[in-house]
Design a protein around this nucleic acid. Structure first.
Lengths: 130, 130
DNA sequence: TTAATATGCAACCTGGAGGTTGCCTGTCAT
DNA sequence: ATGACAGGCAACCTCCAGGTTGCATATTAA
């Protein structure tokens, strides 16, 4: 019978009312992809490993991982599609290296959320006290 | 035939060699859960909405969302299990409010990764130049 | 007391994420 | 030229994240 569901004004905004979406840096839809890419243990370990500096080949990254080379490959692909990682072929092997920029974006995003919260809290407090 | 797979020293560390794991704040395994919780558009929107301050009830959060109340409920549950959100019952409705702490944790984690990268880069550069 | 509201719970469906295996193609070293 | 090594592709499998519907249960307002 579909009792629940939306009941607000017509639908969702759907046309982005200019300024509502608090997009960090053109991010918005992309942010979820970024966070999702980090939402996996294996991928986090890969990131940690790549953060140590030297660009690493796939087999290298596979070593000590319990998983198959192909599994690691897929994870790397996810990281690449999210832009967290770059890849350059060198002869027969393709080396992956980390791209620090999206990390700063995420940092900024998180900071914005936290700040919004703090401000809202302060606003509320002020409103109550006076 | 299983040609690939691990070949490194026995297995993965498996006993945490004390100091290798760069855990931000006891995080390590939990971090993935946190990021995963933010790795979904719907959840990000919920977070954005909750960051505006007032604790909101489920139906309230459902309004204007295209999705069903139960869907939203599940998302909220995910956010709660990740610790990004708290919930308190008030009469017949249960209000959700954001918990800023894990956000700062993630921020710190990201900052660590970025810093590690920068340092590694600097180290490499110094090594090359001199 | 009764109807409307706000949730909770459970069963069910579906697509895609995470893994694996097998096979094929470039590259490097002999 | 011929293996060994590093990767890419594709088919396939399993499981669970997202969603839905239906029904049951508190709480509130009349």
């Amino acid at each position: 019978m579909r009792k629940d569901r939306r009941r607000g004004p017509a639908q969702a905004p759907a046309h982005a009312p200019a300024g509502t979406q608090s997009r960090t840096s053109g991010g918005g839809p992309g942010q979820a992809l970024l966070f999702a890419a980090l939402g996996d243990e294996t991928r986090l370990k890969l990131i940690a490993r790549l953060a140590r500096g030297q660009p690493q080949s796939i087999v290298r990254l596979t070593r000590g991982s319990l998983l198959t080379r192909q599994a690691i490959t897929k994870h790397l692909r996810v990281l690449k599609r999210a832009g967290l990682v770059r890849c350059v072929r060198a002869g027969r092997e393709s080396r992956f290296e980390l791209d620090p920029r999206p990390f700063k974006d995420m940092e900024e995003y998180l900071s914005l959320v936290a700040r919004a919260w703090d401000e809202a809290l302060a606003r509320l407090k002020a409103f109550v006290e006076e």
